[in-house]
């Protein structure tokens, strides 16, 4: 079966099966391997993307349900030469170690900051509560979100990344 969806602003048509997960579609069919699989059961958050404005675990989204949707992955947020302020902050605060959780962490941070541009620490912890990091202990990740909030302050709203 064929579906079409907008990924990082680009309309894509993909041949799928009912057992294709959005995660497989992104990684294998579209080659967007920035989205990671850590558990396949929605527990770790490594596969987090933003779909129709909501944070989702792409390993738990049947690809047919993504038909007609708009998806933002880490590749659509910023590039090496043009980092999004959240990406910049993760680099500058040393929040990145092995990096496997980072795409999901950054997208969860984006969703959080879109809704709440000045989150308190507790709100950041809640916003990132679906994302596990095994390296950092989270402190620097929270610093990164705080720094990003500051950087984004006053910039134009950033609804579509």
């Amino acid at each position: 079966m064929k579906i079409s969806l907008t990924v990082n602003g680009q309309l894509r048509e993909v041949e799928i099966t009912p057992y294709t997960r959005l995660l497989d579609l992104l990684r294998e069919d579209l080659g967007l391997t920035g989205t990671k699989e850590g558990c396949g059961k929605g527990e770790c958050g490594a596969c987090t993307v933003i779909m129709d404005g909501e944070l989702v675990a792409s390993c738990l989204v049947p690809a047919p349900q993504a038909d007609g949707s708009e998806v933002l992955t880490i590749e659509g947020l910023g590039s090496r030469d043009n980092l999004h302020p959240i990406q910049e902050s993760f680099v500058e605060t040393g929040a990145v170690q092995c990096g496997f959780c980072i795409p999901g962490m950054i997208l969860a941070s984006k969703k959080l900051l879109d809704e709440n541009p000045h989150p308190a620490e507790e709100e950041i912890r809640l916003g990132l509560s679906g994302n596990i990091c095994r390296c950092t202990g989270y402190a620097k990740i929270i610093d990164a979100v705080m720094m990003a909030a500051e950087k984004m302050d006053g910039r134009e709203s950033d609804q579509d990344g």
Binding site: T17, P18, R21, G40, K41, G42, P62
Partner: peptide, 20 residues
């Protein structure tokens, strides 16, 4: 799908008919 995709993790291809 947040329950059934966990239940059928690695076995999604075994389901013959889906009602979404």
């Amino acid at each position: 799908a947040t329950d059934i995709f966990v239940q059928y993790n690695e076995k999604l291809h075994e389901v013959e008919n889906w009602l979404d």
